[in-house]
Every structure is written in C-alpha cells, then in structure tokens.
C-alpha cells in the first residue's frame, strides 16, 4: 500500500485538538474500531465462501437437475454440524468430539516428534557448513515425496491403523521444519556471529545466546508451515489407512455411506480447527516472540 488515506483522515480530524505547539496529538485508542473492522472484513470473506457454495449447490441441485445425489448446501451442512456438536448426534458410532480428539491426538504426537527431529536436524545442518551440502540432499529428496506417497512405507512399517497415519504426518512435517530451521540459521548475518566471537563467545554460548534467539521467528514460522502440512496430510492419511476414528476417516466413511452432508460437516470442522491453529495460536506466538526479541519495526 502506497498511501494510507484512512490514517490521515483519522488523524486530520484530531488536528484541531493540538495543544499549542506540542507535536504530539492525543487521538485515543483505535482498538475497538480496529477489532470491528477485522471482524467485518473476516465476515465479508466468509460470506463470499458461503455465497459461492450456496450458488453452486443451487445450480447443481435445481438447475442441472440430473443429480441422483444432492449437493449439500450450507444450511443442511450447518444444521447437521449443530446436531453433531450440541444435540449429541453420533457419527459412525462416535461423537464428533471423539473424532476431533482422535485427529488432534494423532496430530499432536506426530507434530511433537517432527518438532524434536526437525529442530535437531535443522540446527545441525544450519550450523555446520561442512554437513549442510551432504545433509540437504536426503532432506530435499524426502521433501519431494508427496504426503500420501509415504503410504506404502507407512503400511510396511506399521500396518493399517493409527500409527501409519502418525508416521505419514511425521515424515512430511519433520522435513518442512528441518528446512525452515536450517535456512533461518544460515541467514544469520555474519557480523552478528563475528561480534559474538570477538566478545569471546564459545560455540555453546554462540548457539544458545545468539543464534537461537536470532532464528526464533524463523523457527516459529517453520513450525507454523510444518503444522499446516501436518494438519492437511493428517486428514488425507486418516482417509486411506483405516484408522477407525478421526475426521479424515469420518469423511471417507460418510462418503461411502452416501451421507455427503456428514462429510461436509467434517470438512467445515477441519477448516475451523486449521484456521484456529494457524491464525490464532501461531500468529499470537509469533507476535509475542517478535516483541520479546525486539524485532518489531517502528513504534
């Protein structure tokens, strides 16, 4: 954005309240209005999604009118979602909460393992200029394997079931985290390392007190991207490895049972959880870290 006319308009309204020659003008908090704007913008975006969905369902069901199966419209979907969430309606013998918890549980186990491995490997590869060219080769090879292509390996190692899904999620997200962390460490400006060395920092001090804080935001971003990959591949993995419970499993089973409205309700839940994790949890963590690290610009 080149000009921010809104800012100028808002400040201009208060120019009259300037006290004498004081260069600072009191304007008052923008927070309630800003929150309102964010909410409205979000609502508008969401409205577009619902509108397109509704129009498509209407065209498919009522205009084409050749469908054996109905395309679930937003209202039916949210009505069923309501039943799942608040009326105690079960899905494949489990409550929707059981499915959510099963998926989240797998995601957390796999993501935690991926974080440990990714941070460790990323730190080693980022730190060692000698190991990086060698180590980045297998990492890049693994990165090129699409999530579900891990399926044969997962099945060979763990057979059908939950562990195979966890393995696939782990395989995908650990690679993403490794690359992000290694890249972050390699981008630390040489002057920062030189300054620390000149002040007598040994390897451990350099790593703990300088490199680690410097790349915290990169690490958080790597985890954020890894989290997103993990969440997406989790659902896909659950759809194919026969986990017996979980949102992905529920989607594929409801589809087979021709309960498309049920599938759609599960997809909505997946979107909401994904958005909450990314836009709320990780965005807040990143904001906090930037503040703690003194990496905010301006203000």
């Amino acid at each position: 954005m080149l000009f921010n006319g809104d800012d100028d308009a808002r400040i201009a309204k208060h120019l009259g309240s300037r006290k004498g020659q004081d260069p600072v003008i009191t304007i008052g908090s923008d927070r309630p209005a800003a929150l309102m704007r964010t909410a409205l913008t979000f609502a508008l975006g969401l409205f577009i999604v619902l509108l397109v969905w509704q129009l498509f369902a209407w065209a498919y069901n009522d205009v084409l009118d050749r469908a054996v199966l109905r395309f679930p419209a937003p209202l039916e979907t949210f009505s069923m979602l309501w039943d799942f969430l608040f009326e105690g309606r079960t899905l494949l013998g489990y409550s929707i909460y059981d499915h959510i918890m099963a998926s989240l549980g797998r995601w957390m186990v796999a993501f935690a393992l991926a974080t440990v491995v990714g941070l460790g490997m990323g730190a080693v590869l980022g730190y060692s200029t000698a190991l990086f060219p060698i180590g980045i080769v297998p990492v890049s090879v693994f990165q090129m394997i699409p999530g579900l292509a891990w399926l044969p390996i997962a099945l060979l190692l763990f057979g059908l079931g939950s562990n195979a899904a966890v393995f696939i999620i782990f395989a995908v997200s650990s690679v993403v985290i490794t690359i992000g962390v290694a890249g972050g460490i390699r981008r630390v400006p040489p002057v920062v390392v030189r300054a620390a060395r000149m002040m007598g920092a040994d390897d451990l001090t350099l790593f703990r007190k300088v490199l680690l804080p410097y790349v915290t935001v990169d690490i958080i971003n790597a985890l954020r991207v890894g989290m997103g990959s993990a969440w997406r591949v989790l659902i896909a993995a659950e759809m194919v490895v026969g986990t017996g419970i979980g949102l992905g499993y529920a989607i594929t089973m409801t589809k087979d049972l021709l309960n498309y409205v049920g599938s759609f309700a599960c997809i909505v839940i997946i979107c909401i959880i994904g958005l909450l994790l990314d836009k709320v949890l990780f965005a807040e963590i990143e904001k906090y870290a930037r503040h703690r690290l003194g990496m905010e610009e301006g203000y």
């Binding site: 002057v191 030189r194 300054a195 060395r197 000149m198 002040m199 410097y214 703690r292 690290l293 990496m295």
Partner: peptide
C-alpha cells in the same frame, strides 16, 4: 588464528543483539 576479546572490534554495520 581466531577472534579474541583481546582484540575488540567496532563494526561498520550495526552489530547489537536486538533481543537484549
């Protein structure tokens, strides 16, 4: 052969640690 606190350096670029 390596940097040492016996030889202090003031760099041309800013070299402070922003989180401290």
């Amino acid at each position: 052969t390596s940097p040492s606190p016996e030889r202090g350096v003031v760099f041309q670029e800013y070299s402070l640690f922003p989180w401290m």
